[in-house]
């Protein structure tokens, strides 16, 4: 029996390694391409050297550095503005049944609309408001999508917090807002982290609205990466370097809060 259980464990580990590799392979390949000179990045048969950081330097000298700052600003603002609003809305949906099923459906329906349908109306609206080409336009557009998503995620999370805890806080002398602030929110921290990271990712990776609504000075990372597709061809190694750079902040953020993130995603999912 011990022998067969060891074999099973080895088999399971083997399968997990295979799955992990399947997921990581594109990322590892991108990293390899980013570290090779432009001409060799997509050479056939594939080569494994000489290694260089030249592509990173090239990318950072171009519009990418500015785009990186823009993306960081836009995604951070979406999270900073969106999270308190989403927490409020999620809580109201979870505890008070705000708006009934109609509002819940509306919140969910926003996620079902293909972004392309809204692209032109949003573009027209931003022009009308005189915001076209500004970072404000991007923040507002992303908020419109991220807010319902974050609210929905947090709603599930708030539903998982026993109502008795809030009642206990009320009997202890807390107003409903104090109970929310001092008891519910700290307990929902994993959910808040999860919603924050996912809201950040949504804004960080978005391309369509960024292409339509941003200007020359307000390009975000995905748009800046697309400029590496030149008339002379695709600068594969630089695109790869840009992709690696664009992944870094999100990976760093996720690493910092991964414990809460996993807890938040799983708890929010089952409740």
């Amino acid at each position: 029996m011990p022998g067969s259980s060891r074999a099973l464990r080895l088999l399971a580990h083997g399968a997990l390694w295979a799955f992990s590799l399947a997921f990581l392979l594109p990322l590892l390949w991108t990293l390899r391409s980013a570290l090779l000179p432009e001409g060799l990045a997509y050479a056939l048969p594939p080569v494994w050297g000489p290694w260089t950081l030249e592509n990173f330097a090239q990318v950072l000298q171009g519009p990418f550095g500015k785009a990186f700052r823009n993306s960081l600003l836009v995604a951070s603002l979406v999270v900073l503005l969106g999270l308190p609003l989403a927490a409020g809305l999620g809580y109201a949906l979870a505890r008070y049944g705000l708006g009934g099923h109609g509002l819940r459906f509306a919140v969910l329906a926003v996620q079902m609309i293909p972004p392309i349908v809204l692209a032109l109306p949003l573009f027209a609206l931003m022009r009308l408001l005189g915001l076209s080409g500004s970072l404000t336009a991007l923040v507002l557009a992303y908020l419109a999508f991220a807010l319902p998503f974050m609210s929905w995620l947090l709603m599930g999370f708030f539903q998982g917090i026993p109502r008795e805890l809030e009642e206990a806080a009320r009997v202890d002398g807390a107003t409903p807002f104090q109970a929310f602030l001092r008891v519910v929110l700290p307990l929902a921290a994993p959910g808040l982290f999860a919603a924050g990271i996912l809201g950040f990712l949504l804004s960080w990776n978005e391309f369509l609205f960024a292409l339509l609504l941003s200007g020359r000075e307000t390009q975000t990372v995905p748009v800046a990466l697309s400029t590496l597709v030149t008339q002379r061809g695709v600068l594969f190694a630089q695109v790869a370097a840009g992709v690696v750079l664009s992944i870094l902040p999100v990976a760093l953020l996720a690493r910092l809060v991964d414990r809460y993130l996993v807890e938040g995603l799983t708890l929010g999912a089952v409740k």
């Binding site: 026993p162 008795e164 009642e167 009320r170 009997v171 807390a174 107003t175």
Partner: peptide, 15 residues
């Protein structure tokens, strides 16, 4: 509201 009533309460599941 509960917070303005002169009460203390112990709940079934401790809370």
């Amino acid at each position: 509201p509960p917070e303005r009533r002169p009460i203390g309460m112990v709940f079934q599941h401790y809370a």
